[in-house]
Design a protein around this nucleic acid. Structure first.
Lengths: 209, 209
DNA sequence: CAAGATATCTTTACGGCGCCAAGATAGAGT
DNA sequence: ACTCTATCTTGGCGCCGTAAAGATATCTTG
């Protein structure tokens, strides 16, 4: 009898243990944080022996890569939704920034894994920098649509990088309680994000609030 | 016979093992990177048993705190030097940013430990946010000297936070090989940093280059 | 200076970790 | 039906952080 699993690419005994392990990792990550994300804990959560994951991932790092990969996909989707919802090309940059930081705040552990794995290989994953899709290109294209000179490629790349760095920096700092009083003064966390982005030169100062 | 050590606050057997452990940790950190920075490795490097550190630090985290504390001191000194060397108040902001990112690039493992411990306690250390000294206040004061309205405290704090986030974001991204071609196009890494900072709205666009 | 108090360091041990090798098992291919 | 091979388990290695108990050297008190 066939296993009654997801139909496609079903392995032998478990029925796509690879998929189950990634899901288990996400569960552990959300429940216990990045420091508790051990290979053994993931195996435990998935209900298999500690050595079982090695038949689907070369080592712990490769499992993390897989988790991070899904994280980048989710971030990309969040940015796409934000861009689609923006009322104008000018507002789109601002919305992208807010969506980016909100994603990081709502998935802090996942966001951490994403950048930890990126740092280990000293680069953002290919999925981010592809010449066609990917979040990096989304930001770049949005900048052009907002009025950047498409002839000056260097300038556009620098502006895109500057925007990404700014958003990442804010995302990492946003959790620090030191800035709580600023969030209150701005009238909420998202308003705080907008205020910070307006102080960064990336946004053409569109809507107040 | 007294031990022939640093004279002040000399403990019993080793002669300031606490100090020796912090130094050993910095050595391990530089030689092997953050992932190799185990308490046992530090004890080994210092030439003591694995349990010896527990008489000077509550746990591994407290050792890391001490290492990070020294890191923040070093960063503060680097920023102070950059500010002192700046030719004008306007240029000072730019120089602070460059000095910040250069520090992170030259001490990547230490910089990592600094923010890892900060994230664990969900705040930057007190030494950064003191109302008198500390790097945060240095940036804030430099902003005022560069022309920010000292009456609008909220705005100044937001601008300071924005500047800090931008610099931190760039510091974390600067190591990614994805941006190598931009460094080349800008004529060097520091020039790349300056170009990015000019795209961030923090610098009053003073000197080109 | 003698002797007890105290701080420092070592030894030993526990459970958890990443990972590897050898064995068991169950689906796939013939 | 039989073999092959991918999958999973068991057991074990050397690390890790940390706690408890014993050894040792310094400080303190008389």
């Amino acid at each position: 009898m066939r296993h009654s699993q997801t139909a496609e690419a079903r392995p032998y005994h478990h029925g796509d243990l690879r998929r189950a392990l990634i899901d288990a990792a996400r569960r552990v990550l959300e429940a216990e944080g990045p420091s508790a994300l051990s290979l053994r804990a993931v195996a435990r959560e998935a209900g298999v022996s500690p050595a079982a994951p090695y038949h689907h991932f070369k080592d712990k790092g490769e499992l993390m890569d897989a988790v991070a990969h899904e994280g980048w996909d989710l971030l990309d989707a969040a940015l796409a939704a934000a861009k689609a919802a923006a009322s104008s090309s000018q507002a789109a940059m601002s919305e992208l920034g807010v969506a980016y930081v909100c994603f990081a705040r709502q998935n802090p552990a996942l966001y951490r894994v994403m950048y930890d794995t990126a740092r280990e290989r000293e680069d953002l994953p290919d999925q981010m920098r592809g010449d066609e899709a990917g979040a990096y290109c989304k930001v770049r294209d949005t900048l052009v649509e907002a009025g950047a000179d498409p002839a000056n490629m260097l300038d556009i790349e620098l502006a895109t990088t500057a925007a990404w760095c700014s958003a990442h920096g804010l995302a990492e700092m946003a959790g620090f309680t030191q800035f709580d009083h600023l969030k209150v003064a701005c009238g909420g966390e998202v308003a705080f994000f907008r205020a910070i982005f307006q102080h960064m030169g990336l946004v053409p100062k569109p809507c107040a609030n």
